[in-house]
Simulated scan of single mutants.
Amino acid sequence: MPGIGEGPAKVISVSLPEGTVHALREMVGNRGVSALVAAAVEEHLRNRATASYLDEYEREHGAFSDGERRTALDVWSAAEQREAGWRAAG
């Protein structure tokens, strides 16, 4: 079974509010809607999987310390800044 973001595309039906569809099409055009929705869903699924993993880790090993949380936040912030730079570069 393919992982998140892997494998051939499958056609599904998704209902969205009319205003959301209009905003999507304004932003990316008709042909870009599927790619944007796929990327958003993949990001959501990865975030949920990460949160689940972190919850499981804390159940098994105890809560993260404040220092560990600060370090993780620093690493995450740096990664987001790099990603923003990549997106801006096109």
Rank of each mutant, 00 (worst) to 15 (best):
P2T: 09
P2Q: 04
P2E: 06
G3D: 03
G3Q: 07
G3M: 01
G5N: 01
G7I: 10
P8D: 14
K10S: 08
I12Y: 09
I12H: 07
S13H: 08
L16A: 07
L16N: 03
P17M: 13
E18Q: 12
G19I: 05
G19T: 08
T20Y: 06
V21D: 00
H22E: 14
H22G: 09
R25T: 07
E26G: 03
E26S: 07
M27S: 11
M27R: 14
G29F: 03
G29E: 00
N30Y: 11
R31P: 04
G32F: 00
V33N: 07
S34P: 03
A35E: 12
L36Q: 08
A38F: 10
A40I: 09
V41A: 14
V41Q: 10
V41H: 01
E42A: 15
E43F: 15
H44S: 13
H44V: 10
L45I: 12
R46S: 02
N47K: 15
A49D: 05
L54C: 07
E56G: 11
Y57K: 08
E58V: 05
G62F: 04
F64M: 09
F64E: 05
D66N: 11
E68P: 01
R69P: 05
T71H: 12
S77Q: 13
S77G: 08
S77C: 09
S77I: 03
A78Q: 12
Q81I: 12
A84K: 08
A84I: 01
G85N: 03
